[in-house]
Each structure stands twice: as structure tokens, then as C-alpha cells.
């Protein structure tokens, strides 16, 4: 059992929790994730670790309440526990000194990006950051992200805060020469970022989240096509070269269980 020692709401449907898991906290590096299961009949689902505190023995998870499992997780209060938590899974991000880097984060994954940024800053990188969300009320952790950035931009899909849309990324790519780009966020956003950076030939690390079951290379549910070969995101990733990823296939595969998830949700809300 893994106790929730702290909980807060970052936006109407995004929660942050700190979970007691000393052994996991000790080993965690940015880019890695945990797989959790909340109750005896629950499913296994992954959440990226967005911070770890080795002294307190805790890890931080930030998640959006989008379906039954994440809503159940959001209902757990401080003092309550998660039944199973395995991690840290996946390979850590390569956080060396690249020089000038651009970090593009969207939605709920901004927390995980921030974790990368902190370590990348420590390695000596000069960081330009773009944080985006659908609208103003969904933007999270802006002030913290600004702290670790040398240049900082905000964007929303509807223009309710900062710049509108992702188009202006092109301007930024034109203004400054970047040695590397990191992006974490909705898959459709990571796809667009990778397309833009490809035309400027800037190496881009994406962090993928296909459907997963075990997270240790045993099911193949998480397979993605990278450079025409099949890779398992949980053991070969989740970081990949964004210019090599077949995003359309990934996006299609991620929707496979939507009808079932809708049933689960309808029945759950019915209770």
C-alpha cells in the first residue's frame, strides 16, 4: 500500500498527489513513470513521475481526471492509499548539456516536463519554454516553469491566455537557433511540434504514452513504430526521436478501447 501524503487541485480536473514510495523515490529520474492499480478489481495504468523527494521518500504524480480509473484516483484523500504502484519504469530522459534547448509542454504533462527542465537546467542548458493548454483555466504550474526558464511563453488553443494556438512555435524556431527540443503533452501536440522541428532539422525528444498493461515489456500493447521498426514504449522508451515516430498509427491505436471505456464510465457514474 502506498499512502497519499499530500493532495491538491491544480485546475478543475487536474490533481497533484504526493505518494509515499521510498524505494521508488530513491531511483526516480525525469522521464520515468509508475504503473498503479487502485483497488482489487482495478486496471493497471501509467502516470509519469513529476518529481521525487528522496529524503521524504515520496514521489509526485499529476493527473487529469478523464475516465473511471483517473477519477477514482482523484477521489482518494490524504491518508488513504493506492493498492499497487510499480516503478520507476521506462528509461530516464538523457538530461545532458545540449546548449540551447526548447521545452514545449501541454496540458497535464507540464508537471512532468518541469521535472525534466529542473535537471536539464542543472546540467547547464539555456532553456526556452512554451507552456500550453486548451484554455486559461487549464494552464498549470506556470510560475514554477517560468523560474527554470531563460525565455518563457504561454499559449492556449482558444487564446484566453498568452498566444493563440501552436503556430507561433514557427516564429520562435526562426528567431533562435536551438540545439535540441523536448516535448511532453497530448500526442497530437507532440506530433505537430515534431513536424515543425523536423523542417528546421532540430533533434527532438518526445515522451510517448500509448496504451500499456504491464510496463515491463511483456504485453506489446505499447508498441509504436519508430523509424520503421516496432519498439515497446515501456522498455525502449518512453522517450523517442520525434522525427522517427509514426504518430498517426500511435494516435489511432490509443483509441482502441474508447467504446469499452465509455461503458465503464457510464456504469460507474450510474452508481
Amino acid at each position: 500500500m502506498y499512502e497519499i501524503v499530500h493532495k491538491e487541485a491544480l485546475s478543475p480536473n487536474i490533481k497533484l498527489i504526493e505518494v509515499k514510495a521510498p524505494a521508488v523515490a530513491k531511483k526516480t529520474k525525469p522521464g520515468q513513470f509508475v504503473i498503479i492499480r487502485i483497488h482489487e478489481k482495478g486496471e493497471r495504468f501509467p502516470i509519469t513521475i513529476s518529481n521525487s523527494n528522496k529524503d521524504e521518500g515520496t514521489i509526485q504524480l499529476i493527473f487529469a481526471e478523464v475516465g473511471k480509473s483517473s477519477i477514482l484516483l482523484g477521489k482518494l484523500n490524504e491518508g488513504e492509499s493506492i493498492l499497487n504502484l510499480a516503478g520507476p519504469l521506462g528509461n530516464a530522459t538523457d538530461t545532458k548539456d545540449y546548449g540551447n534547448i526548447l521545452c514545449v509542454g501541454g496540458g497535464v504533462m507540464v508537471g512532468a516536463l518541469l521535472f525534466q527542465m529542473k535537471v536539464l537546467k542543472g546540467s547547464g542548458n539555456n532553456i526556452t519554454t512554451i507552456i500550453g493548454a486548451r484554455s486559461k483555466d487549464r494552464l498549470i504550474l506556470i510560475d514554477e516553469a517560468r523560474k527554470y526558464s531563460d525565455d518563457f511563453y504561454v499559449a492556449t488553443d482558444d487564446g484566453s491566455e498568452g498566444r493563440q494556438g501552436i503556430e507561433f512555435l514557427k516564429e520562435i524556431l526562426q528567431q533562435k537557433r536551438f540545439d535540441h527540443v523536448f516535448t511532453m503533452g497530448p500526442t497530437s501536440m507532440q506530433k505537430i511540434v515534431s513536424e515543425y522541428t523536423k523542417s528546421y532539422n532540430i533533434p527532438t525528444t518526445v515522451n510517448l504514452f500509448p496504451i500499456m498493461v504491464d510496463g515491463t515489456g511483456m504485453c506489446g500493447a505499447c508498441r509504436v513504430t519508430v523509424g520503421n521498426t516496432t519498439r515497446f514504449a515501456c522498455v525502449h522508451g518512453p522517450d523517442f526521436d520525434g522525427h522517427q515516430v509514426d504518430f498517426d498509427e500511435l494516435i489511432s491505436r490509443m483509441r482502441f478501447y474508447n467504446p469499452n471505456e465509455k461503458i465503464a464510465m457510464v456504469l460507474y457514474e450510474g452508481v
Binding site: K41, E43, Y257, N260, A264
Partner: peptide
């Protein structure tokens, strides 16, 4: 994947169990 969902996660009892299978 098919067998893990079915056996370990008991997808044959979906939606009583949360793991789906198609």
C-alpha cells in the same frame, strides 16, 4: 497481452473488473 488482460486482469468480468478487452 490478450492473456494478461483476460487472466491476470480478469477482463472476462469487465465491467465488474476495470480492464477492457475487445
Amino acid at each position: 497481452e490478450f492473456l494478461i488482460r483476460t487472466n491476470l486482469m480478469k477482463a472476462y468480468k469487465f465491467p465488474e473488473y476495470d480492464t477492457p478487452i475487445r
